[in-house]
Amino acid sequence: MRIAAFLPELLRSLFKKPNTVDYPFKKLAVPEGFRGTPHLDPDMCIVCRACERDCPAEAIEITAVNEAEKRFRMVIHNDRCIHCGQCVDSCPTVPKAMRIDSLFEIADDSRHKMKEDWVYVRAVIKPKAPAPAPAGESPNA
């Protein structure tokens, strides 16, 4: 039992700079490898749908716009996305068609504004790693 055991520490803080950051005006940098918002690089996507299949939040939607022209549309619903990065892990192309950047301030006043979509022609680059068959090997190996 010591009365005022905390006193030295408290008084020391009185003359120190606050430890907190004045957030919206000053920001801390996120570390390298931070999982922010997923993005598509449409030039690389071979539309294997591995990302769509493995996304736990069903945030990725791939639809065919024109089957003959091999035109596809991908929508990423950022309101549903849980920023797990599984889509990046699942994507078989090299370099990855699906990327994740460090953007985290994505809040908006409407969920519809948080969608991002791309309409693109399926890439014909041969992936260096084999695309996983729908029920074959796991892509995260």
Partner: peptide, 20 residues
């Protein structure tokens, strides 16, 4: 955050090991 890429939901596990 440095090791896993996020503060709360680390998502470091993968079936059969870890991701990072």
């Amino acid at each position: 955050e440095m090791i896993t890429g996020n503060r709360v939901h680390y998502a470091i596990n993968a079936v059969g090991g870890v991701r990072r």
